[in-house]
């Protein structure tokens, strides 16, 4: 059985995590998909001290003689999951960033070239996308 004082502390910390995460999602500063694991962590923190006798029984059933160690184990697993999810997100983001940078560079080169050509020989450009000029539009 974990000491009542540390149980209260855990409970309050869990509540704080839940409130913080929900508030950030509400303000759209945290996306739902990244909030889920944090909410799970917050829930475990809040519920574990309330049902610490259940926690004790699970710990003994798993062969853990010192029940608070189960809490630490859960915390480490939770952190690893969150970090892993971040690694996945970073890989995905850097792939997208690469493509965006490449396209941006290519577009800029094309734009510069077009601008240079236009300065070199200013041609009459059609006004409309379909290649017609404003004064050529047939009135119907």
């Amino acid at each position: 059985m974990i000491d009542p004082r540390s149980r209260l502390l855990l409970f309050l910390m869990g509540l704080a995590v839940l409130i913080l995460v929900i508030n950030l999602v509400r303000k759209r500063q945290l996306q739902e998909r990244y909030a889920l694991l944090w909410l799970l962590a917050g829930l475990v923190l809040t519920l574990a001290p309330l049902f610490s006798n259940v926690l004790d029984r699970i710990a003994y059933a798993l062969g853990i003689d010192y029940p608070p160690a189960l809490l630490l184990l859960l915390a480490i697993i939770g952190l690893m999951l969150i970090i892993f999810q971040l690694s996945l997100a970073i890989s995905h983001n850097s792939d997208q960033l690469k493509v965006l940078s490449q396209e941006l560079g290519l577009l800029r080169q094309q734009l510069d070239k077009l601008q240079r050509e236009q300065v070199a020989q200013p041609e009459h450009l059609p006004d409309n996308e379909d290649g017609t000029d404003a004064d050529q539009i047939p009135y119907v």
């Binding site: 960033l97 690469k98 940078s101 490449q102 941006l104 560079g105 290519l106 800029r108 080169q109 070239k113």
Partner: peptide
């Protein structure tokens, strides 16, 4: 030379691939 300027440093492979894309287009 034609110059394609990448807004960030992508590393060797990212730069070369930009060249491949330029070649294809």
């Amino acid at each position: 030379a034609a110059v394609v300027t990448l807004p960030v440093n992508l590393g060797y492979g990212g730069a070369v691939q930009t060249g491949f894309r330029y070649a294809v287009r």
